[in-house]
């Protein structure tokens, strides 16, 4: 027991500051990448910057980057196809077909399939809409994902990353990656096939190679796992809510 404990009138001079309330109630969020460090002799040292901390500059940098990604997705998936429609530019669906070569040239040489650039000159409105659909879906998914990440960042910046709503945000993000990415891919394949179905491709035989977007799907699984971790975190957060 310390000396001041026996003298309540002097107790307020003890300067104890080793206990703080729950995160957020005492005004600290611990996310600014600055750690208070006491010197080895017990004196308070100058705040030291944590190099690996995800601080305010990193957050703003990521927000700007996400904004650029979302803008790029909208331009590439929606604005450009619409501009092509307005200006009457031809559609250029990708065609995969087996490579055909004269028999003499093929001796000892292996040939597979190749991609061809086909111009669909003066396509109808239905073809334009079909060509627009995959880009629209992809842009929507990218914007949704970026928005989820920005909202997540806001709670991290506020020092409350385990807000239960973040579990939902992470699950939406995981869904966009695991389900949305292959859906956009299949829509692209179907759209391509439907546009090409009305065209005379000469002697080209359409081939199909399954090329699923594995990287986004794998990233989505990791995000889904993170959502479960955040669910545990939000349970712990609820447990310490009201702890004095």
């Amino acid at each position: 027991m310390t000396d001041h404990a026996n003298h309540p009138d002097r107790a307020d001079q003890s300067g104890r500051a080793d206990q703080t309330g729950p995160a957020g109630t005492d005004g600290t969020d611990g996310t600014d990448g600055v750690a208070g460090v006491a010197g080895t002799d017990g004196t308070a040292g100058r705040p030291r910057r944590e190099l690996l901390a995800f601080d305010r500059i990193d957050r703003w940098g990521l927000v700007v980057l996400l904004g650029a990604v979302a803008l790029g997705a909208i331009v590439a998936g929606v604005v450009e196809p619409l501009a092509d429609w307005v200006t009457g530019a031809p559609l250029t669906p990708r065609v995969e077909s087996a490579v055909t070569v004269p028999p003499l040239d093929a001796v000892g040489v292996g040939y597979g399939s190749a991609s061809y650039a086909v111009d669909a000159v003066d396509p109808g409105a239905a073809q334009r809409l079909l060509a627009l659909a995959p880009g629209l879906l992809a842009a929507g998914l990218v914007v949704l994902s970026c928005w989820c990440i920005v909202l997540l960042l806001r709670t991290v910046a506020a020092g409350d990353p385990f807000d239960p709503v973040n579990v939902t945000r992470l699950r939406v993000l995981a869904g966009a990656l695991v389900v949305g990415a292959p859906l956009a891919y299949f829509l692209q394949v179907v759209s391509n096939a439907m546009v090409l179905g009305n065209m005379d491709l000469g002697r080209l035989d359409l081939t199909f190679t399954l090329d699923l977007p594995w990287v986004p799907m794998l990233a989505g699984m990791v995000v889904a796992m993170l959502a479960e971790a955040f669910k545990s975190g939000s349970r712990l957060r609820a447990d310490v809510d009201g702890l004095v």
Partner: peptide, 23 residues
């Protein structure tokens, strides 16, 4: 609050019977 080393907010929570747990 100053003597104990907790925030006034937290001590107020305890005083007003709104605390769920006490260390």
């Amino acid at each position: 609050a100053e003597a104990v080393g907790v925030t006034v907010v937290n001590l107020s929570v305890l005083k007003n019977n709104r605390a769920k747990a006490v260390r």
